[in-house]
Computed example of a mutant assay.
Amino acid sequence: MNDLLAVIYFVFFAAIAGGAFALMSQNLRSSQERDSLQTPRRRSRVHPEAPQPGEEVLYVDFSRERLEQMYQQTP
């Protein structure tokens, strides 16, 4: 009985391992085909959330000297 269960186990193990390998190879093949079919998109050089020229931005200085000055100024 134990021999039969071992054979069944290894048959199912081989089926699952073969299916996993087939799925992995098919995914790799389809991703290569998709990459070769796509034309390269031209990306804009400016991020959409980047500040426009002349626009003010918030700047926080966390340098050690600046922090030490801030702590010395507090009463």
Rank of each mutant, 00 (worst) to 15 (best):
N2V: 04
D3N: 10
D3P: 08
L5D: 14
V7Q: 08
I8R: 12
F10Y: 08
V11A: 07
V11P: 02
F12C: 09
F13D: 01
I16A: 15
I16L: 15
A17C: 09
A17K: 00
A17G: 11
G19T: 08
F21A: 15
F21K: 03
A22Y: 14
A22H: 07
A22P: 03
M24Y: 13
S25K: 08
Q26T: 10
Q26V: 08
R29K: 15
R29N: 14
R29P: 05
S31I: 04
Q32A: 13
E33Q: 12
R34W: 06
R34G: 06
D35N: 08
D35W: 04
P40S: 02
P40E: 05
R45W: 00
V46F: 12
H47P: 02
A50M: 04
A50S: 13
A50G: 02
P53V: 03
E55R: 15
E55H: 12
E55Y: 04
E55M: 14
L58I: 09
Y59S: 06
Y59Q: 06
Y59C: 08
Y59E: 08
Y59L: 08
V60R: 14
D61F: 01
D61N: 13
F62A: 03
F62V: 00
S63K: 01
S63C: 03
R64L: 05
E65A: 13
E65L: 13
E68M: 13
E68C: 06
E68A: 04
E68V: 01
Q69Y: 06
Y71R: 14
Y71L: 08
Y71K: 13
Q73N: 09
T74P: 01
T74G: 01
P75A: 01
